[in-house]
Design a protein around this nucleic acid. Structure first.
Lengths: 108, 108
DNA sequence: ATATTATACATATTTATACTATGTATTGCA
DNA sequence: TGCAATACATAGTATAAATATGTATAATAT
């Protein structure tokens, strides 16, 4: 997993903006910020605050998790399953994992 | 899309710390910060900087993407689980999902 | 050739807040 | 009783988030 640093953040935002096909000036107007600050961020001379990054992610229609997700963490089809698993406490979850391990043993 | 706000960040960190079974004081010493500041963050009176949050995520052994992923409340266990699930064929996977749904029914 | 548009960077300033320090209060526990 | 842990209030400092301005350059377009 790639380490998230200043460079990652700046490149990610520049990529998102270019993909949207919008100028830094237009983006800055939409966000109510100076275009120079957008420039500073995209060139790694400033790091936005978390609240600032939330606004930026909202602007691009992605979550913070997606912003920082370099790889695909888990297959999309497991999302509903994970939603169910969130209802379990950690002890129950561990039992589920143990059950599945019993099933998958023969697959090795 | 769930909104990530100050409250999410504070609760997430408190949950991670409690899961690790460590005091705010001990955590603050490990991170080289004041315990009062940890308290402020966990009670929503302060928001860490992105660099500060990177340190916190490193401390708990998770990525920023995992930190903000509302579907992954127990990232470590889920990673293990998904690794096992990938060994199953679709029929077996469906049976597992049915079992989990039976268990989670009473949680509603 | 020259406006215009977009990016880039330097420098300087303002403003906000991340983070610390200290004191007090409460709870649970040995 | 005393300690360990959390919680909050207040006040302060130091850092950096964010702005402002000016200059430079390259790419279009006029």
């Amino acid at each position: 997993m790639e380490k998230v640093d200043k460079k990652f953040i700046s490149k990610r935002i520049a990529t998102l903006r270019n993909a949207k096909g919008i100028s830094a000036r237009a983006m800055s107007l939409d966000l109510g910020q100076s275009s120079e600050y957008i420039n500073q961020i995209e060139n790694g001379r400033s790091i936005p605050s978390i609240e600032g990054l939330i606004n930026i992610c909202d602007y691009f229609g992605i979550t913070l998790s997606e912003f920082f997700d370099t790889n695909l963490l888990y297959p999309i089809q497991y999302k509903e399953l994970i939603k169910e698993l969130n209802k379990l406490d950690s002890l129950e979850l561990q039992k589920i994992i143990d059950i599945i391990k019993l099933i998958t043993q023969r697959h090795n």
